[in-house]
Design a binder for these strands. Sequence first.
DNA 1: CACGAGACCTGTTCGC
DNA 2: TGCGAACAGGTCTCGT
Length: 276
Amino acid sequence: MPELPEVETIARLLREGQGPIPAILERRILAVHLLWERTLQTPAPDEFRRRLQGEVFCAVNRRGKFLVLQLTQAVMLVHLRMSGDLFIEPGSATPAPHHRLYFELDEGLRLAFNDARKFGRVWLTEDAQTVLADLGPEPLDDSFTAMQLHQGLQARRRQLKPLLLDQTFLAGLGNIYTDEALHRAKLHPAMLSQNLNTEQATALWDSIRQVLREGIQRNGASIDWVYRGGEFQNHFQVYQRTGRPCPVCGATIQRMVIGQRGTHFCPSCQPLPEGR
DNA sequence: CACGAGACCTGTTCGC
DNA sequence: TGCGAACAGGTCTCGT
């Protein structure tokens, strides 16, 4: 499910709360319930429970698609993968069927990790860098420039779509926002990264940042039964719009598979150059 | 290095 | 109605 904007939205919710839902900051962990052991990447369940006993949340951040929950003595990292969600609920609520891990907190609250497909993972470590070390740049950071992107594209010879999904190349894009960014930049998803000129690389840089910012501003995208509250799904130009008209030119949106991922694009706005 | 296939999982939707 | 196939926001590992 979640890509950068959804993870950012969840991080903000945990950090600031919303309406009747309080923030997680300064809340203390009273008990740990691990219902699906493979959720835990590291350490072993016993050590995980022991080290979290009495811990207090002091900051919530995001790096790529990782949630970074800073505690007093350690840091907990959460990756939601395809169907994960992380939220505060009343400690009195009946745990939902897909809760894989939850924490009873003080003030009668609960932090729940819910994940139907069981792909999500959690780490507890002293040093977040051990988990985050291979991630590429943050696309919305001021330090990430169009020139940097262009140089990165030049250094590889890969199709744009799988390259943009590669988290070591750029951290945070997933299937939705990649398709939307390529459409906005008028670039074919199968175009080879080495063939982009300066204007095209700059357009891609701009589009990536615009699409991610708009996603965050709309609280992410909510599709199917997973994740609620976002509304970016109402503003897709190509994603999941196969067979419908392109909002820009009216041509019929097509779907193809690239790198085993469903890929949506407008054949008229995003032509594949000769020799790609 | 780049790419494709298969694995990990459950739930929904689509076609016959 | 039933049933299997295809598909889903992600990432890892293995073989070519």
